[in-house]
Design a protein around this nucleic acid. Structure first.
Length: 504
RNA sequence: GCGGGUGUAGCUCAAUUGGUAGAGCGUCAGCCUUCCAAGCUGAAUGUCGAGGGUUCGAACCCCUUCACCCGCUCCA
C-alpha cells in the first residue's frame, strides 16, 4: 500500500504519542534536529538491534553457503582532522560557492572572474575561468553596455572573490542578462567544526564525523591484526553522524544530526562485482523482512554524474529507496550500497604513510582490498517504519500503527476486562511474568475500548485480556491489532504465544 | 539560499475581523462498566512561537526573529 496520507498527520501522531519531538522545543526548536521520545527510542533501538543481530551476530549466508564473517566496532565521532583530508571531505567541499538566483546555477567562486570598467563604475560581467566561450560572451555584453567597439586598457579583469559585497549588485552572471543575480560567495562546508581542548584556537580545530564509514577504515588494520578475520569479511558500525545540510527538511529525513548503520565489506578486487550484487539483494530483502512492502521499495542505480567522489572508480552505487509520504509518488534514499573500490584504504595508507593493506597467506599476495559499502540510515529507517506503519482506518482511533511485531515499541498489553471481580489480580500476575522477557504494558484505566485504542496508536500488536471466563477456565483473549479479532488461549500459554509471534 | 504558506491547551481547531482566550478529543481523579476512544461527575493545562513597535487597549495591525510545511536549490 502506498503512503498517500499527509505527512503532518504522521508528525502529529509522533508528537502526540511520544515517538519524536522537535529538539529544544522549549526554546522554539532548532532547525534540523529532533529528539526521540519513549516510543520512538524503543522503535529506533529495535531497528538498530535487528540490524546488528542480522548483520553481525547472525550474518547472512554467503554465496558459498557459509555465513559471512562480520565484526563490529564503535569508533570515535571526533578523529584526527587529517582523516577528513584523506577521505576527501575537507578538500572537495570547502570551496566558497556562488549561486545565481535567476538561473539557479552554482559556481565555485574562485572559478569566476569579472570584466568591467576600471573606473569602478558600471556593470561587471562574470565569466568562467578558462572558458573561452564564456569570456567572449562577457566581453561582447560589456562592449555593448559600454557602447564601445572594442575593449581597451580601461577595462580590467578581476577575480570575483576580490569584489566588495556592494559590488555584487553590479555583476551580471555568466548566463544571465540582469545584474545582481549572483549571491555573495558562501562557504559550503557540510562538516561541523568543533574545537578540541579547553583553550580553543584554530590549531585545535576538529570535525564531527559526516559519516561513520571512515572510523571503520581507520581501524581496518587493527581489526585485521586482532580479530582473526580473513578477506572477505565485513566491519559494521552504528552511530551518529553530522552534516550541516543546506536545507534540513522533511521531518527526520534530512536532519543535521542522524544515525547510520554501515558495513564495509572488504574483498578482493576480482570478487567485488559479485559481492556488490549480493549485498544489493541482501539489503533489500532485509528491509522487506521488517515490513516495508515491495511497492514502497525500489532499487535505483546512480547515474555516473551523481556518483560520490569515492565511488567513481568502482562499479557504482545502488540506492534502496522508499516511498515516503512526502516523496510520493517519488522515492527517497533509505540506504546506499556503494562500490567504493579501494579508494579509502589507499588514501589512508597514502596520507598516514603507514601500511594499510592485507596479506593473503594462501595466495601469497598482498593487496589493498576493495570495499562494498551497504550504508543504511537508522534515522531514515525509523522514519520509513513509521511511514509504513501509519494506517488510517475507520476504527474509533481513526489510525493505528501497523508495526512488524519484531520492531514494535511495545510488544503486548495486559488488561483486566473490568477493574474488579478478581480480574486485576490475575492480570497483574500475567503482566509481572511477561515483563521479564518483553516490553509489555499493564493498563486498567477507563473502558476496554479506550485501552485498545491507545495501544493501536502505539502500534502494540497484541492485547491480552483477563475476563470473567479466565477465573473459571484459565483462558484469556488475545486481541490482534490489525484485525481487531480475538482468540482464546490458556493463560499459561501467553508467554509462549508472544515468543512465537515475535520470532516470525 | 530563493519564493509561498502556517504558528492559539498534549492533539485538531475556534475567537463576530483591536476590547486581556474557548471547544472537541486526549490526559488525570472518582463512579460506573463483562470486549473496542461507551456513560456520568469533576480537575489540571496556555506569558496566543519569540522580541520590539503602534494604540487607552493587540491572538488580531507593523517590524524583526525562530520553527514547521509546500515548491525550487542542495544533499560528498
Amino acid at each position: 500500500m502506498s503512503n498517500t496520507y499527509p505527512m503532518e498527520d504522521l508528525v502529529s501522531l509522533c508528537k502526540r504519542r511520544g515517538f519524536i519531538f522537535p529538539a529544544s522545543e522549549l526554546y522554539g526548536g532548532i532547525n534540523g534536529f529532533w529528539d526521540y521520545g519513549p516510543l520512538g527510542t524503543e522503535l529506533k533501538n529495535n531497528l538498530r538491534d535487528a540490524w546488528w543481530h542480522d548483520m553481525v551476530h547472525c550474518p547472512p549466508i554467503g554465496p558459498d553457503g557459509d555465513p559471512l564473517s562480520i565484526v563490529g566496532i564503535d569508533s570515535s565521532i571526533i578523529q584526527n582532522p587529517k582523516v577528513w583530508e584523506a577521505s576527501g571531505h575537507v578538500g572537495g567541499f570547502n570551496d566558497p560557492m556562488v549561486d545565481c538566483r535567476e538561473t539557479k546555477s552554482r559556481y565555485r567562486a574562485d572559478h569566476l572572474f569579472v570584466i568591467g570598467n576600471a573606473s569602478g563604475e558600471g556593470q561587471l560581467y562574470a565569466f568562467v575561468e578558462d572558458d573561452e566561450e564564456s569570456y567572449e560572451r562577457a566581453s561582447k555584453l560589456l562592449a555593448k553596455y559600454e557602447k564601445v567597439d572594442a575593449l581597451d586598457e580601461s577595462y580590467v579583469t578581476t577575480s570575483l572573490i576580490q569584489l566588495q559585497p556592494d559590488d555584487f549588485a553590479r555583476v551580471v552572471g555568466p548566463d544571465t542578462k540582469e545584474a545582481g543575480t549572483l549571491t555573495e560567495p558562501r562557504q559550503f562546508s557540510l562538516m561541523f567544526d568543533t574545537t578540541v581542548g579547553a583553550t580553543g584556537g584554530d590549531d585545535n580545530k576538529a570535525y564531527l564525523r559526516p559519516e561513520t564509514a571512515q572510523g571503520i577504515f581507520l581501524n581496518f588494520m587493527n581489526v585485521v591484526d586482532t580479530s582473526r578475520v580473513k578477506v572477505p569479511f565485513g566491519i559494521a558500525q552504528v552511530g551518529k553522524a553530522f552534516r550541516n545540510e543546506v536545507t534540513p527538511r522533511n521531518f527526520i529525513f534530512r536532519s543535521r544530526e542522524f544515525e547510520q548503520m554501515e558495513i564495509e565489506w572488504f574483498c578482493h578486487e576480482e570478487d567485488a562485482p559479485k559481492w556488490y550484487e549480493f549485498w544489493c539483494d541482501v539489503r533489500k530483502e532485509w528491509w522487506q523482512s521488517l515490513g516495508l512492502t515491495t511497492g514502497n521499495l525500489q532499487m535505483r542505480q546512480h547515474d555516473s554524474d551523481e556518483l560520490a567522489h569515492y565511488a567513481k572508480e568502482g562499479c557504482g552505487t545502488f540506492d534502496i529507496e522508499y516511498q515516503f509520504p512526502f516523496t510520493a509518488p517519488g522515492f527517497g534514499e533509505l540506504e546506499g550500497v556503494a562500490h567504493r573500490g579501494n579508494y579509502d584504504l589507499s588514501r589512508h595508507g597514502e596520507f598516514s604513510g603507514k601500511k594499510v593493506n592485507y596479506f593473503d597467506q594462501e595466495k601469497n599476495e598482498r593487496f589493498v582490498p576493495h570495499v562494498i559499502e551497504p550504508s543504511a540510515g537508522l534515522s531514515r529507517g525509523t522514519l520509513a517504519l513509521l511511514s509504513e506503519a501509519y494506517t488510517p482506518d475507520d476504527r474509533p482511533s481513526k489510525v493505528f500503527m501497523k508495526f512488524n511485531p519484531r520492531i514494535a515499541p511495545i510488544k503486548a498489553a495486559v488488561f483486566p476486562l473490568v477493574n474488579k471481580n478478581g480480574m486485576p489480580e490475575v492480570a497483574k500476575n500475567l503482566y509481572d511474568d511477561l515483563r521479564t522477557k518483553h516490553v509489555v504494558q499493564y493498563d486498567v484505566k477507563q473502558s476496554i475500548g479506550k485501552r485498545y485504542a491507545r495501544m493501536d496508536e502505539a502500534g502494540t500488536p497484541f492485547c491480552f485480556v483477563i475476563d470473567g471466563d479466565t477465573l473459571d477456565d484459565n483462558t484469556i483473549t488475545v486481541r490482534d491489532r490489525d484485525t481487531a479479532s480475538q482468540e482464546r488461549i490458556n493463560i499459561d500459554q501467553a508467554a509462549a504465544y508472544l515468543d512465537e509471534k515475535l520470532s516470525t
